[in-house]
Write a protein that binds this DNA or RNA. Sequence first.
RNA 1: UGAGAUGGCCAGACAAUCGCGCUAUGGCAUUUGCCACAGUGAGGAAAGUCCGGGCUCCAAUGGGCAAGGUGCCAGAUAACUUCUGGGAGGCGUGAGCCUACGGCCAGUGCAACAGAGAGUAAACCGCCAGAUAAUUUUCGGAUUAUUCGGUAAGGGUGAAAGGGUGCGGUAAGAGCGCACCGCGCAACUGGUAACAGUUGUGGCAUGGUAAACCCCACCUGGAGCAAGACCAAAUAGAAGAGCAGUGUGCUUGCACACAGAUAUGGCCCGUAUCGUUCUUGGGUAGGUUGCUUGAGGCAAACGGUGACGUUUGUCCCAGAUGAAUGAUUGUUCUCGACAGAACCCGGCUUAUCGGCCAUCUCAUUUU
RNA 2: CGGGGUAUAGCGCAGUCUGGUAGCGCACUUGUCUGGGGGACAAGGGGUCGCAAGUUCGAAUCUUGCUACUCCGA
Length: 117
Amino acid sequence: MAKFSRAMRMNNPRDYTRVFRQAKRSSKGGLTVLTVENSVGHPRLGLAIAKKHLKLATRRNQLKRVIRTSFRQHQSVLANIDIVVLSRGDVSQREMAQIWVTLERHWQTVATQWQKS
RNA sequence: UGAGAUGGCCAGACAAUCGCGCUAUGGCAUUUGCCACAGUGAGGAAAGUCCGGGCUCCAAUGGGCAAGGUGCCAGAUAACUUCUGGGAGGCGUGAGCCUACGGCCAGUGCAACAGAGAGUAAACCGCCAGAUAAUUUUCGGAUUAUUCGGUAAGGGUGAAAGGGUGCGGUAAGAGCGCACCGCGCAACUGGUAACAGUUGUGGCAUGGUAAACCCCACCUGGAGCAAGACCAAAUAGAAGAGCAGUGUGCUUGCACACAGAUAUGGCCCGUAUCGUUCUUGGGUAGGUUGCUUGAGGCAAACGGUGACGUUUGUCCCAGAUGAAUGAUUGUUCUCGACAGAACCCGGCUUAUCGGCCAUCUCAUUUU
RNA sequence: CGGGGUAUAGCGCAGUCUGGUAGCGCACUUGUCUGGGGGACAAGGGGUCGCAAGUUCGAAUCUUGCUACUCCGA
């Protein structure tokens, strides 16, 4: 059962600044993924999709939904880490299917970086 | 059949799996929650923020000025830069469509360059009469030049040159006279009105520009849900109240006297710091609310040319807050555009793949 | 989400209120001075005035609608 409840989102600005300061980065396919350890007991996801990269609100919402769904389906392989997904300037040229594939590759690299203890 | 005009409607469909927000019910915890099941869940533009209103706070009970807006007339509406009907002008064969459409005979200004002249008109070329001179002569005059006058018909300049066309008239011309057209004024008729029609009259007066200042008529207080209301840590500061160390006295909880406490340090001096508890108000982080039952939708009847209004019945139809509608797979079709609510409504504007319906127009063919 | 501002030469800015000629500085090109560079002097080129409609005889300027950038309110 792969749920995605409200506690698995990062709601606090301090969490974001902590991640931005200490995180490991990996970027490919129009997205950048930042990861850092947390003490909550489960993985958490945060999104930062820039208006400059995707001008239309429809496209931004669509991208966020795709990222959330992918996170939900792959959260069993992830350790207790905070993840922030950033958009990059070239994301506007990608199809949604391509984004889906690159997200799966991101989760694999993150899972190898942070072995589940 | 083809080409159009106007108005309205839809915005891929179905199924499976995994998920999200809100609401109701039930269960477990009772503290914020968790679980089960059911219902419900973006738009015609949600957009731009260009107008109007509700709502909230601030200001003000009034009047005037300023500033801004609107601008044919009548109506609709909570209100409007909206809508409906009508008028005028323009476009189209037509159905129809478009129009910031009050006033420069109240005042002030502006019009570069060109042009003689750009507004109480003006003689550059030209046309015409007279005078003078020359030439010529059939002795009537003719031609040329100069000068002084007349003249807005023609040329030329310009975006624009002070009514247009025709006839008369004249030395040449001229609203100088006449006819028609246009314009102004007056009366009458129709119309709520804008305006239209008829008659008479004037004889050209009144050129353009008000999205130039302005005049006239009408309208407008300012800010915006990050408005506003409520709850409320920590820290610093403010106000108030109680308590405070040591010694003495006695009436045993009061009075009087003396200053202190902590840190540094072996101790003194010295140095540094300074009460403690509670309450109050203020209000930060954070949270709650505002937050969706409304100038609501749908249907019918009635009134109205219509926008719309009235009555009855019926329905409840997003409410998020780092922000909910998605992903994957399958089937199918016409292969899916523009695009995501954030306090709520009425409009306008802009973006947009296509499809359907109704009414109407034109052309062609057949009967 | 709400409220403002700006757009003119490669860059930074005037001109817009009050409509007729688009200008200033730096940069660029050419020439002269110098043995050369630097520097100075002289001359020159370079503009859909963000885009599109409208008003006007005429629009960078006035009006309306779009586009981009930017600031403020947590």
